[in-house]
């Protein structure tokens, strides 16, 4: 546990690089946030805490009308959209320019 802050700092310093693994932060967040909100029907605060994996995203937006979640984290952007009641949410293969 003592090494955790150093580990996190290293990740942040490295976040300027496009490391594919770092997509996990934004992609897991948007996918699980989308499912939590639009499939499970929980509120944003619960879902925000639930969807966080390993590290928090730096920013996110929820479009309630189109049922889409976007997020940025560690140099990558993620997007997930709600498809239907039966098929729930799906992660989309879209990279947005870093805001």
């Amino acid at each position: 546990m003592k090494r955790a802050p150093l580990f996190i700092l290293s990740l942040i310093l490295l976040s300027g690089c496009k490391v594919p693994f770092f997509k996990v932060v934004s992609n897991s967040f948007v996918k699980e946030m989308c499912s939590c909100l639009f499939v499970v029907g929980q509120d944003e605060n619960y879902c925000k805490a639930y969807a966080r994996q390993i590290l928090p995203v730096s920013s996110y937006t929820i479009d309630q009308q189109t049922k889409k979640v976007l997020a940025d984290g560690l140099g990558h952007s993620g997007s997930a959209s709600y498809i239907s009641n039966e098929l729930g949410c799906r992660l989309e293969d879209i990279e947005f320019p870093k805001r």
């Binding site: 499939v39 498809i83 039966e86 098929l87 799906r90 989309e92 293969d93």
Partner: peptide, 8 residues
């Protein structure tokens, strides 16, 4: 109450 998500 079932939902079953798919991959791309």
């Amino acid at each position: 109450s079932a939902t079953w998500e798919q991959d791309g």
